[in-house]
Design a protein around this nucleic acid. Structure first.
Lengths: 210, 210
DNA sequence: TAGATTGTTAATCGATTAACAATC
DNA sequence: TAGATTGTTAATCGATTAACAATC
């Protein structure tokens, strides 16, 4: 069913489809055509059908798409029905903000532990997640194979932390640091959120205006 | 010098060039060729030269690019040499995290004020930024024309907040909420960071592996 | 059945890569 | 000057859009 390789642009759009389908479901809409969905999302019907075709297509001729089914299918593609294990490395402001606010469960992940180097926070529990000493990351990962690490340390600790994670067999890193992380040939998946890159793009578009 | 329209993909890469050039400068490198830079960043020399060509080209035949000059040129394109005014709407965990940690100045922005609806935080000052009552956003913007609003309210307050900002003449919104914001025909620039979209993409790539 | 709308094939458009003349 | 490397033009590749036969 699934094609061998799906392009980055398509994957970029998939979570947006999922959000829109959640909204539609909340609104009580049961079926939707590619052209209606296109109007709502600012995409062409063609693009929507092409995107879904990458995964085999979920519609029915003459009818369109069942909102609930489509939501579940796309959710499954993105893994929201999974329960992936996760650790968080770096419990600074941003790390704590994620621990306290972000709905990991909703995306198919469970945070098992957090790590930090600061003595005074090690041993505490934040939102049910124990904070362990960063020195034991490697030991922890050996004993508890883990899918993903959220990386939210400060700049200077990124290289050591990333090396420890990659060498201990983490499968993916969700990178919130300002640094570019190289997976080398390890095959580790790296997904990065660069706040400043985003703000600089905004700066560009502001400059363009005047 | 500047072309009429520069494609999204190019703008996406510009902040990355800036980061790499900062690193190079820190390492003491004075000049670099498109092929060296390509090797470092995993891009083709052609792409780099094409990207820069959008802005007129900053190099010299037979020499390459002067790291310092190129950094300044790209910085100027992204507006890091500007001083744009900014407000923050929604001082929850994420809002506070940005206030306390993010280096706005470094990107060319200054946070002038923050807004919230919670009585107990209004009147306080966070990192030198006064927290005002969200009810006065429109008045504030009338009296203090502002370039950008950081939007970090919770889901249910997004529509009112966005409407207030757009109708009061904000130029851009840096959107951290899980919602899609429509600028309508207002011309307001919207730059969004969706944490969950990013994590869902990571989920996709994890699923792909096994 | 007739109408609607898909999945898919073909056409177009844009972005990346390659090649090369210009020139420092 | 000769060598290097740019800026730019041409070729290729991929992604989006359009068209249409399949079919619910």
């Amino acid at each position: 069913m699934k094609k061998e390789y799906v392009s980055k642009n398509v994957i970029q759009r998939m979570p947006r489809y999922l959000r829109e389908l959640n909204d539609l479901e909340r609104e009580g809409v049961e079926r939707i055509s590619s052209s209606e969905l296109g109007t709502r999302m600012g995409l062409t019907p063609s693009q929507i059908r092409q995107d879904f075709a990458n995964f085999g297509g979920f519609g029915q001729q003459g009818y369109g798409y069942n909102v609930h089914t489509l939501k579940d299918e796309i959710g499954a593609i993105l893994g929201v029905d999974r329960d992936r294990s996760m650790i968080l490395v770096g419990t600074g402001k941003l790390g704590q903000c994620l621990l306290e606010n972000f709905d990991f469960q909703h995306c198919g992940f469970t945070l098992k532990a957090a790590f930090d180097i600061k003595e005074d926070i090690v041993g505490e529990t934040i939102c049910g997640v124990p904070v362990l000493n960063a020195a034991v990351i490697r030991d922890y990962l050996r004993e508890n194979p883990t899918d993903v690490a959220v990386l939210s340390t400060n700049r200077e600790n990124v290289p050591i932390a990333a090396a420890a994670l990659i060498e201990s067999g983490i499968h993916a890193i969700w990178n919130f640091t300002e640094c570019e992380i190289s997976a080398g040939d390890s095959g580790v998946i790296i997904e990065t959120i660069h706040f400043s890159d985003s703000l600089l793009r905004l700066g560009y578009y502001l400059n363009e205006e005047d």
